[in-house]
Simulated scan of single mutants.
Amino acid sequence: MTLYGEDDPNIRKCIRHGPVAHSRRNVYPPSANTPKISNNIKHLSFVWEMGSTIVTMLRLRRPTTLLWGFGLCLLLLFYVTVPSTNTDQCDCRGHQRAVTSSAFIGQSQQEDIRSYPNDKHKMAILIPFRDRFEELLEFAPHIHNFLNTQHKNHHLYIINQVDGLRFNRASLLNVGFLESGIDCDYVAMHDVDLLPMNAALTYQYPHDGPYHVAAPHLHPRYHYPTFIGGILLVKREHFRKVDGLSNKYWGWGLEDDEFFARLKEAKLEVFRPGNLTSGTKDTFKHIHDRRVRRRDMIKCYNQQEITRHRDRQTGLSTIRYRLQSKKEMTIQGAPMTILNVELECDRYVTPWCDCTENIGNTPKSQQSSPKSDDVIVPRLNRKKHLSHDG
């Protein structure tokens, strides 16, 4: 990432010399003539010593190797020890914040810098990710410009799953919540393939409760009443209150339905946008092509039975992962943090995190099935509640 592509050359002086010299000038303010006199003395001393060394060498008709070496060492010594004679001073006051916040990854998370002071909140946009680079290229600048138009303080976090296990969207959202900046007081659980198109859609701070931007009556594909996927805004305290999302959902689907059950159990009402007339065709742009990237809908062991029930064992407090690396990058002016994450799988609890050797007729897990009254995902009429990709 280019940190200072458009800054003036003085920024390099600040990086090299730092604000220490500037602070010394403030602590010990010299007189107007002191710098000039000091520099002249250093110049004269350097010229005198260098000249004396050269004259001594010229007087010797056959200078020995020792004398030549001594003379060269003396010149090198003076070159290294004498401070720079450049009288151009660098005023780091204008660049000190930029150097501090950009040169060190993570420092910006500790500072509460608001691009839009009138917006008292900051949103962390959490994007679970794997092998969707073309979609990210379109999504990042679009959502960045969309939110800038609304003067929303925000930052993008791409939680990239780099292990060999099946994709786990819910666990990646848990990781993104833990790794996002402490200055972000609410999160947006956002799909990378869903672009808001209606300017009336707001990513407002969810004061009263979770705010489902991609409401069922607006989403291009999913229309059942308990759907809360796509784009959901949640305050950090509410996310912690329900212990985040379940970590049992390896593969595609159902993790949002289980999260809805958690919100309902915590008596958190889900709010949705109203008074929009754009409908399911013009409110969002769905850029996922299921013919190019098929969703992982494989079911193995007793996954289909277990994941239809409320999970009371796993969540934000039990997530296990390793942060492989953390990178900063920009796509067409949209800054973002890339979190390369390796998830861990308890194969006794969720053996379906890897179905490569257990597809088809496979033995069931030794776990007992949940109670029937804990069912959170009813069997839906797909023709009634689902439509083709938008």
Rank of each mutant, 00 (worst) to 15 (best):
N26M: 13
T337I: 15
R114F: 13
T280D: 03
D183W: 07
H238C: 01
I11Q: 03
A21M: 08
K13Q: 11
F259S: 04
F271V: 00
V47N: 04
R320C: 05
N275Q: 13
Y211H: 12
N340Q: 12
L194S: 03
L323V: 11
F271K: 08
P117R: 02
Y203E: 03
I228K: 02
R320N: 10
V187F: 05
F259M: 09
S369G: 00
L165N: 02
D131Y: 07
L165W: 03
E269Q: 14
K326F: 00
V349C: 00
S317K: 09
R12G: 04
G18S: 11
I54R: 04
T65P: 01
H17C: 05
A200K: 15
N39Y: 04
W252G: 02
T337C: 09
R272T: 15
F271D: 03
Q107N: 14
E269C: 01
V292T: 14
K371Y: 00
Q332Y: 14
H238Q: 14
K384Q: 15
H121W: 07
Q304W: 04
T283P: 02
I37K: 10
N174I: 08
N302I: 02
Y222C: 01
I376S: 04
Q110E: 12
K326N: 05
N39V: 07
K384M: 13
C300V: 02
E6G: 05
Y4G: 01
E269N: 11
P210A: 13
E49M: 06
N302Y: 00
L245T: 00
I298T: 08
I359T: 15
R382I: 13
F129C: 08
T318K: 06
Q96T: 12
T64R: 12
I287W: 02
P19V: 14
S102H: 10
D208T: 13
G51N: 07
C355F: 01
G253L: 02
L268N: 07
Y4R: 01
L137Q: 15
G181R: 07
R61E: 15
D354P: 00
F260L: 08
I319P: 01
F146Q: 05
H22G: 14
R272A: 10
C14E: 06
G94M: 04
K248C: 01
V213E: 02
E135S: 07
K285Q: 10
V213G: 01
N174D: 09
E357S: 14
P83L: 08
R262E: 07
A21T: 07
P128A: 15
L58F: 11
G333C: 08
S369A: 13
N118S: 13
V341K: 02
K326M: 11
F146E: 04
S38H: 06
Y116V: 03
H217N: 13
D88Q: 12
F139C: 10
R97S: 14
I331Y: 11
T100K: 10
K327I: 08
F78L: 15
Q107A: 15
Y116M: 02
N381G: 05
G251P: 02
E111V: 11
Y249C: 03
I158Y: 02
Y249R: 00
F239R: 04
I231N: 00
D374S: 14
V80W: 11
Q332D: 15
T85L: 13
K36C: 11
T337P: 00
L75Q: 08
P363Q: 06
